[in-house]
Simulated scan of single mutants.
Amino acid sequence: MTEGNFTDYVKINVASGKGGQGSSHLRREKYVAKGGPDGGDGGRGGHVIIKGNETLWTLYHFKFKKHFKAGHGENGGKQTSTGADGQDVYLEVPLGTQVKDPQTNDILFEITEHDQEKIIAKGGKGGLGNFHFKSSTNQTPRYSQPGLPGEELEVLLELKLLADVGLVGFPNAGKSTLLSVITSAKPKIGDYEFTTLKPNLGIVQYRDYRTFVMADIPGIIEGASQGKGLGHYFLRHIERNSTLLFLVPADAKDIYQEYSILLNELQKYNPELLDKDRLVAISKSDMLDDELKAELRQQLDAQFKDVKYLFISSVAQQGIQELKDELWEILNKAGEKI
């Protein structure tokens, strides 16, 4: 998907360099009439290498340039000198990028660490010079090996955001507002559906200078798991979050039913998502007075048996610190399990 400067899916073409030709040079110097073969090897062709970069969070830099070619290896020279290797090409990607075969959609590898490197296209091997072919019966070989060709292929780069907490909710549930209050992120906010068309990342400042990362995933709709709307594009980002924060507005017709629909969409898309830690935040609760909250609690206590819920208001700054405390506790428990 591409929206603004955010790109999380792109197809690129890469080509490694071919190896250099081995030299078939014969040594010729003053006073050395028949010096024999001294041809050096050709240099290796350049690799195309995928490299992780923690400062990137989008594949936008591949939006306009999609063809990448490494340098060719240089030919071997006299005096058994080896040709220079072709120049490698490094393609830097954000952490959480999967490299896939576009034909089969199989994952070739994924980049999850800073400075992690994987060769996607190996450079061709340089040819051997005639120095390697001399023998007692063939003392002046006048031939050498050509370099091997490089590789050329198409690959898919697909980004799945790496975050500690993923915000899950229907459009207009207040996810962007919460992210803007709880982090320093500045997402687009509006009182209408699908304000957010791209995932937003923010760093939550916790007590004693500790932090964790939260991602605002664009709103899910019923049928998202079947690809309705932009379902598949959005849901794949949730797979990388260790904890899911479900946001349901207090003015929803049925809070528990809305939560159940969201949970059902996640289960249909990938049943493993239900193994993640969950927390439910009932947003816009500044619209509720104490009496309404008490009534709701009686009802919700009976319904939310397997997951904790709490009332928050991003606008009125109610329950925000309590929310941070709960998330921090869940994240630490998740870390202890690992």
Rank of each mutant, 00 (worst) to 15 (best):
135 S>I: 10
133 F>A: 02
218 P>I: 08
188 K>I: 09
134 K>L: 14
191 D>C: 00
154 E>V: 15
156 L>Y: 13
224 A>G: 11
159 L>T: 13
133 F>M: 00
215 A>Y: 00
179 L>I: 13
144 S>C: 15
156 L>G: 12
202 G>W: 01
225 S>F: 11
219 G>K: 05
140 T>P: 05
159 L>R: 08
190 G>R: 01
145 Q>L: 05
201 L>G: 13
229 G>K: 06
149 P>L: 05
230 L>M: 13
151 E>F: 05
233 Y>K: 13
147 G>D: 10
187 P>D: 13
202 G>N: 00
213 V>H: 02
185 A>N: 05
219 G>F: 05
141 P>K: 06
144 S>I: 06
229 G>Y: 11
211 T>M: 02
159 L>E: 14
216 D>I: 09
166 G>P: 10
211 T>Y: 13
152 E>A: 07
221 I>R: 00
200 N>K: 05
162 L>Q: 14
161 L>K: 06
148 L>N: 02
212 F>N: 03
219 G>M: 09
164 D>N: 11
223 G>L: 04
217 I>A: 11
198 K>M: 07
151 E>V: 02
161 L>Y: 07
153 L>V: 08
155 V>H: 02
155 V>E: 11
209 Y>R: 08
215 A>I: 10
216 D>F: 07
208 D>Y: 08
195 T>Y: 02
226 Q>R: 05
222 E>S: 04
182 I>W: 00
187 P>T: 12
142 R>I: 04
181 V>M: 02
208 D>C: 01
146 P>V: 04
143 Y>P: 01
173 A>Y: 00
158 E>V: 15
211 T>W: 00
197 L>K: 15
180 S>I: 08
231 G>E: 01
163 A>D: 07
233 Y>T: 08
232 H>T: 05
188 K>D: 09
191 D>L: 04
170 F>G: 01
221 I>E: 03
169 G>P: 02
162 L>G: 02
158 E>K: 13
219 G>I: 08
189 I>K: 04
231 G>P: 03
184 S>D: 10
191 D>P: 02
167 L>G: 07
208 D>S: 13
231 G>T: 03
197 L>E: 12
136 S>T: 14
217 I>F: 10
167 L>P: 01
194 F>K: 02
229 G>H: 09
163 A>L: 07
231 G>A: 12
199 P>T: 09
173 A>K: 00
141 P>I: 11
220 I>W: 04
135 S>R: 06
180 S>A: 15
185 A>G: 06
194 F>N: 07
216 D>Q: 10
141 P>V: 13
144 S>P: 01
202 G>T: 01
201 L>Y: 12
192 Y>F: 15
156 L>C: 14
149 P>N: 09
155 V>I: 15
212 F>G: 06
227 G>Q: 12
160 K>H: 14
161 L>P: 03
166 G>E: 10
189 I>S: 06
178 L>H: 03
226 Q>F: 08
151 E>I: 01
141 P>F: 08
213 V>T: 15
224 A>I: 04
209 Y>E: 13
195 T>F: 07
227 G>C: 11
230 L>A: 10
230 L>Q: 11
231 G>L: 08
203 I>W: 06
197 L>V: 12
191 D>S: 07
231 G>W: 03
159 L>G: 11
159 L>V: 14
164 D>G: 04
178 L>F: 00
206 Y>W: 14
208 D>G: 00
168 V>Y: 06
227 G>I: 05
181 V>T: 11
163 A>F: 06
206 Y>E: 12
